[in-house]
Amino acid sequence: MAKITMREAISQALMEEMDRDPKVFIMGEEVGVWGGTYAVTKGFYDKYGAMRVKDTPIAENAIIGGAIGAAMVGQRPVAELMTINFGFSAMDYIINQAPKLHYMFGGQFTLPLVIRAVGGGGRQLGATHSQTPDAIFAHFPGLKVVSPGTPEDAKGLLKSAIRSNDPVLFIEHATMYQVRGEVPEGEYTIPIGKSKVQRAGKDVTIVTYCKGLELSMKAADELAKQGIEVEVVDLRTLRPLDMEPIIESFKKTNRAVVVEEGWKSYGVGSEIVSRIYEEAFDYVDAPIIRVAQKEVPLPYNRTLEQAALPQVADIVAAVKEVLK
């Protein structure tokens, strides 16, 4: 096992898939000559050339609409949204076209398309550049929504996403590119639509994903010192949602906390909590608590921004609350 960063993991996945399949190409703002705003595609332009690493105008409809069209006629584009917030400019394509076209035309063609998008707060970018709107996208049948929390998962899931014949929105977190983790040597993929227990425990189930995983693992360490063993289940894929490991864990612990970076109202946590109540009501020993972002546009000021985002201390407090 090699220890690499999230950035390296994503970069390796892209490169391996481009080497494996000539139909795979990249398009987006500053992905080529610049090397990617987050340096994920650094060196790609020199290696693969302008036809396979396409610098686009700042025109999200042309990028995502173009990727959809290219996918419909048999290519496997990986389109990059510099930030997921810019995806709102191309909302028609992400939620109203890509997830519908296969179904609406009776399966006449497929859409083997990946949209890589960088989301998340915590970098003092102000309200329009810092959102975690994952739940919006996960609302739509026909789209697959993936958001990994470790380098191992990022690499394996991105490779699966590129090989998938369906449109996949692959959400990365802006503050996690330097996160390091063990990654298997050589070729591997991780299936889309499988949640995973990232840490075993018997007292409380934490359900989370992406940045929430990083925070929850820290909270779990802290709680372990106090004798509380939490089990952390990582969604990894928001749609299609795999509830099995969550329900299995909950039947053991009977208590749960759901952690997400997005807003609490109508969020990922709302869905998870409902599903636990629907599928395991007899096992509930305490009300399930959601830890999420405060219901405000994210401010620029660092102190205020951090106060709005979920913190390790919030998770620790929530776990203790459900244990009362």
């Binding site: 609409g65 959809i68 069209g69 290219a70 996918a71 419909m72 006629v73 584009p77 076209q97």
Partner: peptide, 22 residues
Amino acid sequence: GHAIVGGHLPIASGFAIGDQYA
């Protein structure tokens, strides 16, 4: 057959991107 006014134009560009790539 696309019903969002103008929505199919970038998709048409995409077809041509795919054909150019091929």
